[in-house]
């Protein structure tokens, strides 16, 4: 803090200085630009190259993978590894399971997170501060502490998966989509995120509708939710990514071979296909493609949204 306070005190007027230093700066600026370009290109190569190399390897026939492993463009590109993936195992099923879990999580988190975030931002009621602090604080609790008990809660979920009213007799929600969907259906992050978004919108819109006799749900659904589209989009992308990429919880809660997610299935291949890199890397590409596509599409959507708000 001291540096912040003292720096401006001794600062002279910058204008005359700039005149004298402008010539050497251009030479320095040029080398600076070259060094900068070199650095960012090099880092990009390390971040992007492994993915490109994975894609290239997944398109090589078995004989080519090891013999010409440094060659980026395959001599005889083939989809054989992808075909093998679907022919040999239930990889299609894994993809479907992950899609259900990721999309289901998006729908419930957007709806319930939106509703609860709206209530915390725009409705006045006693206990609002307490509820908000509880949600905020719960984000700090590391997942590991609840891992074992959550498994038991799901296993003994009343009247699910052959359980009786007291949660005995069956497997409960374990090995069903519910085991992954229900605990994370309305995460504190979704509530917090949407609350921040609604808080930036003016109160007057709701007040006007309230005088006209609109119900609170109508005010939320017809007036505020459409204005929060950009926030919903960002939250949707983040939730989809988290759901599609999640690993430890699906590994624990879904162990029926028919119920595995694409991440858990792929993790099994790393050891199973120790020497068969082709199918393993083909599976890696398929497991990454949805999130990469969503990322690329959403980036455009978000930038467009910014452009719109700029013209208003």
């Amino acid at each position: 803090m001291t540096a912040l306070a003292t720096a401006p005190a001794s600062a002279p007027a910058p204008a005359p200085q700039q005149l004298t230093t402008s010539r050497p700066l251009t030479a320095r600026a040029l080398t600076g630009k070259v060094v900068w370009t070199l650095a960012v290109v090099l880092i990009s190569v390390t971040t992007v190259m492994p993915l490109v190399w994975t894609l290239s390897t997944s398109l090589k026939p078995e004989g080519e993978i090891l013999s010409s492993y440094l060659q980026l463009v395959p001599d005889n590109p083939t989809l054989a590894n992808y075909v093998a993936l679907f022919a040999d195992g239930p990889f299609g099923r894994y993809l479907a399971n992950s899609a259900v879990i990721a999309l289901g999580g998006v729908v419930t988190n957007l709806f319930f997170g939106g509703l609860a975030g709206y209530a915390l931002a725009k409705l006045s009621f006693r206990g609002r501060g307490v509820v908000f602090s509880l949600f905020l604080g719960s984000m700090m609790v590391p997942g590991i502490i609840t891992m074992v008990p959550t498994f038991l809660v799901l296993r003994h979920f009343p009247l699910a998966g052959g359980n009786d009213l007291f949660g005995e007799g069956g497997a409960g929600l374990i090995n069903s989509y519910g085991a992954v969907l229900v605990p994370f259906a309305a995460g504190p992050f979704a509530v917090f995120f949407m609350r921040q978004f609604f808080q930036a919108l003016p109160d007057e819109l709701g007040d006007a509708a309230r005088i006209d006799g609109a119900s609170e749900f109508r005010i939320f659904w017809n007036i505020y939710l459409p204005l929060a589209r950009a926030g919903l989009a960002v939250l949707g992308v983040l939730t989809f990514q988290a759901g599609w990429n999640s690993f430890l919880w699906p590994l624990i809660a879904l162990n029926d071979p028919e119920m595995l997610t694409v991440q858990v299935g792929l993790a099994g291949y790393v050891n199973e296909y120790q020497t068969q890199y082709g199918p393993l890397l083909a599976g890696t590409i398929l497991a990454s493609l949805p999130v990469l596509l969503v990322f690329v599409v959403a980036q455009r959507y978000i930038i467009e949204n910014f452009a719109h708000s700029g013209t208003k």
């Binding site: 492994p50 994975t54 690993f247 792929l266 790393v270 393993l280 890397l281 890696t284 497991a287 990454s288």
Partner: peptide, 12 residues
Amino acid sequence: SSTVATAAIWFW
């Protein structure tokens, strides 16, 4: 990318 996909890439 997921940690699993990343791990598979790094395995290679």
